[in-house]
Design a protein around this nucleic acid. Structure first.
Length: 474
DNA sequence: TGAAATGTTGGGGCG
DNA sequence: ACGCCCCAACATTTC
């Protein structure tokens, strides 16, 4: 082992196992582990409240794994790193690559600035199974449709890197002082809201591995079918762990494939493929978070209605499956994927509110908020993205509720005020006869809202609006 | 990774 | 026995 000194700059790789940058640094000598909160470079894409809450605890967990010697700083990374370089006579800096446009631009400039002053910079892929520039069509342009991207693009590539072990010995440079601890980042807001999220999560590398193990033991068995039913435990809930890199996609990919090779594991791997696809889209279309991928949506007649937006955000639309999803988000920091599609369709199609509103709300509330996944997802549901849902696909929240939560177990978890209502009316309480409502102790408009819009009317209004975006009529 | 409208079929009730 | 109607149940088309 050589005796170099390296900084490992932790970003979205908050783990010891399968961490190529950290492993490289540790093999070269001693390591100064740093996390830098860089809100200024992030600009309008700075982390939302739920993410910051998660990050706080994830850093605490990582810090415990690093003998309590993780340094946390806030500000301009290049000047902070340079100070440390001088103070501790560091030779080399390692980090694992991030793929958001502002991160790419920032890291590129930091790398050249450090290299110009004689510092070695080593960067690695720790987050993606295949990096965006590896997966291109024959004509060297990026895929815009998922299935060929995944089948002919990803699966035709060399297999992803097999997970690495944790550094077997970690000599950590102790750079602690009284100002560079986790609480100096002030990630926890004054609001008490995020604290209740705590009971739903075990944050950190160990929690991530336990979640994976539990899923591979139970939930994956009926994944392909069961993943559509939000009351069932057939989803992995790994997304926040993956976002912060408490576990890598490679670790998840190989663990799933080692467990069994059937339609359930294959489908689960396909979902990891969607994550790759979203990152590829963001890489090649850096305006993805703000601009419609399909420009013909630019003149779309979106409504402005802050009252409707508020009702949607607060889970008060009067459509129980929609409200359950929005309340799940507020209560737990996550929303089941099937329900994300339902609430997204409702916002964009039935309320005709711009997908940006949904994207921003999710960004602030989701513990798995991820620029690539969130932007790609909202563009998909709005129909303006890559491989998008056809414009005429409008989810019916009544039918969807009846089909995917027939017993009401999921919906009633978040809308307990409808507990006594016969199941027949659970997803359309406004159709229940007065006597039935009275018997269930429900007064619509008081205990539970009346529908914010009429389904039939709003569906037809959406079809009219979306029709105007069709190529042949424009 | 829809929904609704429209079309088709086939069984049963009934004169 | 037969034709007619009704209407689920399913299939196809359209948005």
């Amino acid at each position: 082992m050589s005796s170099k000194k390296s900084i490992h700059w932790f970003r979205q790789d908050l783990r010891l196992f399968d961490n190529p940058g950290l492993l490289s640094a540790s093999r070269n000598g001693s390591v100064l582990p740093v996390y830098i909160l860089d809100d200024k470079s992030a600009g309008e894409f700075r982390m939302g409240a739920a993410s910051r809450w998660w990050l706080h605890y994830s850093l605490e967990s990582l810090n415990r794994s690093l003998q309590d010697k993780l340094i946390c700083l806030s500000g301009n990374p290049v000047s902070l790193i340079k100070q440390l370089l001088e103070q501790y006579e560091i030779d080399s800096v390692t980090w694992n690559r991030c793929y958001e446009p502002w991160q790419i631009a920032r890291d590129k400039s930091i790398k050249s600035e450090l290299e110009a002053s004689g510092i070695e910079v080593l960067t690695f892929n720790a987050s993606l199974l295949w990096e965006p520039w590896q997966v291109l069509k024959k004509d060297q342009t990026p895929y815009r449709v998922f299935t060929p991207y995944y089948r002919r693009g990803c699966l035709a590539q060399a297999s992803p890197r097999e997970p690495l072990s944790a550094p077997d010995s970690l000599q950590i440079i102790d750079a602690r002082d009284d100002k560079n601890n986790i609480s100096s980042l002030a990630l926890l807001p004054d609001l008490v809201w995020p604290e209740k999220l705590e009971k739903y999560w075990v944050i950190g590398e160990e929690g991530a591995h336990n979640a994976l193990a539990g899923f591979l033991d139970q939930g994956i068995n009926d994944y392909k079918e069961g993943r559509n039913f939000p009351a069932r435990n057939n989803v992995s809930r790994l997304s926040p762990h993956l976002h912060f890199g408490e576990i890598s996609a490679n670790q998840v990919w190989y663990a799933a494939r080692a467990r069994s090779d059937n339609e359930n594991t294959a489908h689960f791997c396909t979902e990891l493929g969607w994550r790759e696809f979203a990152h590829s889209l963001l890489y090649f279309f850096p305006e993805l978070p703000r601009k419609n991928l399909q420009e013909r949506f630019n003149g779309f007649p979106w409504q402005e209605n802050s009252e409707h937006l508020r009702l949607w955000q607060q889970g008060q639309t009067g459509y129980p499956i929609v409200d359950a999803g929005m309340r799940e988000l507020w209560e737990t920091g996550l929303m089941h994927n099937r329900v994300r599609m339902i609430v997204g369709s409702f916002l964009v199609k039935n309320l005709l509110l711009h997908w940006h509103h949904g994207e921003r709300w999710f960004w602030d509330c989701l513990v798995d908020a991820d620029l690539a996944n969130n932007s790609a997802g909202w563009q998909w549901i709005a129909g303006c993205g890559a491989d998008a849902a056809p414009y005429f696909r409008v989810f019916n929240p009544v039918t969807q509720g009846e089909r995917f939560d027939a017993a009401g177990d999921y919906t009633l978890r978040y809308i307990p005020e409808l507990k006594e209502l016969p199941k027949k009316y659970l997803f359309c309480p406004w159709t229940a006869p007065d006597a039935v409502l009275k018997n269930a102790g429900v007064t619509l408009g008081e205990d539970y809202p009346l529908p914010v819009v009429d389904l039939k009317y709003s569906r037809e209004r959406a079809l009219e609006a979306f029709k105007s975006t069709r190529r042949e009529s424009s």
